[in-house]
Simulated assay, not measured.
Amino acid sequence: MSDLVTFSANQAIAEAPPSMGPLAVLLSLSDYYAVEAGETFELSLTIHNQGLRGAVIDVYIDETSQAFFQWCNNPCERLALEVGQSDEVRFRVTVPVQTLPGTYDYLIVVDAPDHYPEDTPLRYPAKLQVLPPVKAAINLNDATFATRPETSSEQPIILQPNTPMDVQVIVHNRSDRVDQFRLEITDLPRNWYQIVYPEGLGELGLIVESDYLALNPGVKGTIRFLITCPINTLAGRYMATLRLHSANEPNLVLMDALYLQVPPIYNLAVNTEAIIRKVKRQPALFHLHITNSGNTAREITLQAQEDQEDPLFAYQIEPLQLRIPSMTTAQATLTANPADLKKRAWMGRGHAVNFRLVADDRHSLPLPEATTAELLWERRPWWHLALVILATA
Rank of each mutant, 00 (worst) to 15 (best):
residue 321 Q to F: 12
residue 49 N to Y: 06
residue 23 L to R: 01
residue 261 Q to V: 08
residue 321 Q to P: 02
residue 195 I to A: 07
residue 210 S to F: 06
residue 262 V to H: 01
residue 363 H to F: 15
residue 38 G to N: 03
residue 238 Y to R: 11
residue 150 E to D: 11
residue 190 R to K: 15
residue 273 E to S: 15
residue 276 I to E: 15
residue 319 P to C: 07
residue 177 R to V: 13
residue 222 T to I: 14
residue 37 A to H: 06
residue 322 L to S: 04
residue 256 D to K: 15
residue 314 A to G: 06
residue 152 S to H: 10
residue 91 F to P: 00
residue 119 D to E: 13
residue 74 N to F: 06
residue 66 Q to S: 14
residue 46 T to Y: 05
residue 90 R to P: 00
residue 269 A to V: 15
residue 322 L to N: 02
residue 197 Y to C: 07
residue 24 A to N: 08
residue 286 F to K: 03
residue 295 N to C: 08
residue 350 G to H: 02
residue 228 T to K: 14
residue 73 N to A: 15
residue 17 P to L: 03
residue 85 Q to L: 07
residue 17 P to E: 03
residue 58 D to C: 07
residue 263 P to I: 09
residue 348 G to F: 06
residue 349 R to C: 07
residue 336 A to Y: 01
residue 164 P to G: 10
residue 139 N to Q: 11
residue 17 P to A: 05
residue 196 V to K: 07
residue 53 R to Y: 06
residue 19 S to W: 05
residue 29 L to D: 08
residue 115 H to T: 13
residue 183 L to F: 10
residue 162 N to Y: 10
residue 257 A to K: 12
residue 139 N to G: 15
residue 295 N to H: 07
residue 318 E to S: 14
residue 256 D to Y: 14
residue 13 I to S: 02
residue 316 Q to H: 14
residue 10 N to H: 13
residue 235 A to L: 05
residue 53 R to I: 09
residue 307 D to W: 08
residue 40 T to W: 01
residue 357 L to Y: 01
residue 195 I to F: 07
residue 271 N to A: 15
residue 144 T to Q: 11
residue 285 L to P: 04
residue 128 L to N: 00
residue 21 G to V: 03
residue 294 G to P: 03
residue 234 L to Y: 06
residue 300 I to M: 05
residue 25 V to Y: 00
residue 184 E to H: 13
residue 247 A to Q: 12
residue 123 R to Q: 13
residue 219 V to N: 05
residue 333 T to V: 14
residue 147 T to R: 11
residue 216 N to C: 06
residue 150 E to G: 11
residue 338 P to T: 02
residue 312 L to C: 04
residue 379 R to G: 09
residue 385 L to Q: 13
residue 391 A to N: 14
residue 144 T to L: 10
residue 153 S to H: 10
residue 87 D to I: 03
residue 390 L to E: 10
residue 8 S to W: 08
residue 84 G to N: 05
residue 119 D to S: 14
residue 93 V to R: 00
residue 248 N to V: 10
residue 108 I to D: 01
residue 230 P to L: 07
residue 300 I to E: 01
residue 235 A to V: 07
residue 15 E to P: 02
residue 371 T to Q: 09
residue 212 Y to P: 00
residue 227 I to Y: 01
residue 237 R to T: 13
residue 120 T to M: 03
residue 38 G to T: 04
residue 355 F to T: 00
residue 107 L to D: 02
residue 224 R to L: 08
residue 306 E to C: 06
residue 59 V to E: 00
residue 331 Q to D: 08
residue 40 T to A: 07
residue 76 C to Q: 13
residue 274 A to Y: 08
residue 65 S to P: 01
residue 257 A to I: 14
residue 388 V to L: 13
residue 59 V to P: 00
residue 390 L to K: 09
residue 12 A to S: 10
residue 373 A to H: 03
residue 168 Q to A: 12
residue 317 I to D: 02
residue 356 R to C: 04
residue 271 N to C: 10
residue 240 A to R: 04
residue 93 V to F: 00
residue 113 P to G: 10
residue 243 R to A: 12
residue 289 H to T: 14
residue 342 K to M: 10
residue 108 I to N: 03
residue 317 I to V: 15
residue 41 F to Q: 01
residue 233 T to H: 06
residue 315 Y to C: 04
residue 177 R to H: 10
residue 45 L to R: 03
residue 104 Y to A: 03
residue 393 A to R: 11
